[in-house]
Design a protein around this nucleic acid. Structure first.
Lengths: 119, 119
DNA sequence: ACCCGAGGTCTATTCCAGTAGACTACAGGA
DNA sequence: TCCTGTAGTCTACTGGAATAGACCTCGGGT
């Protein structure tokens, strides 16, 4: 349940998968070497752990994600709001905005997102 | 600069300080024992590190915070939005809301916060 | 029959956050 | 004078995230 928590390195790795799934494992080794500077065994070690935790899937060298990017993002955002802001989105928003100013356009975009989440 | 990053244990400890500053260090030892289950030396070790990083201040056994709760909260929220959502607040909001639904009242509150951050 | 690349496993090593134990110094009461 | 509480330091252990090196197997090409 809580094993959906992705550590930093895992998150970066999953990002590669999300960007290119379904992807061959050897190709993934190449991508991780390129974009993360990882050695082959590092990739396989991390891949295996993520498979064991039901986050990724490796089927005959074809890697796909069981936990989708949106799931991980939602989880991540929820955690922060809970841990740091007592679960209150308004408190999060207030803190984030701080002295920051929004343009009319940005404000409209945000309000639209909120409007769509009503009910 | 980036030393303002608070690790989990540090954050919990700072919360105690924020809640009760200015606070005597012995009293803080007591609070940390009560609320975090920490031993005395743990409290002093963490306190010292935070002082060295300019986050707290210990003056003749009177502890105060140089970095305020709002600063830490803003920092924390900014980090997530940047690290996980490419700095885009709309993307964060969309992810957080996900399938969640807002009541009219909640939506109004959020829109008000946004409105106040305009320009 | 041999080599090579694909596809992987298993076992370390390193680093650091988190936590604590043992010790020191000093001031004020009994 | 000794004890006790306050205030603090310094060193050390532990667990786990991050990373990698050495090794294994198997199928296809020469």
């Amino acid at each position: 349940m809580d094993s959906h928590k992705l550590y930093d390195a895992e998150y970066r790795f999953c990002s590669l998968v999300w960007d290119s799934e379904p992807v061959n494992s050897t190709e993934l080794v190449r991508l991780a070497a390129d974009q993360l500077g990882w050695k082959k065994s590092t990739t396989y070690t991390v891949l295996k752990k993520l498979c064991e935790r039901g986050i990724l899937q490796n089927d005959n060298a074809i890697v796909t994600a069981l936990v989708k990017r949106e799931d991980a993002e939602r989880y991540e955002s929820t955690i922060v709001v809970e841990k740091t802001f007592g679960g209150s989105l308004p408190r999060f928003l207030t803190a984030f905005l701080g002295e920051r100013k929004l343009t009319d356009q940005e404000a409209e975009e945000l309000k639209k997102i909120i409007e769509e989440a009503k009910q």
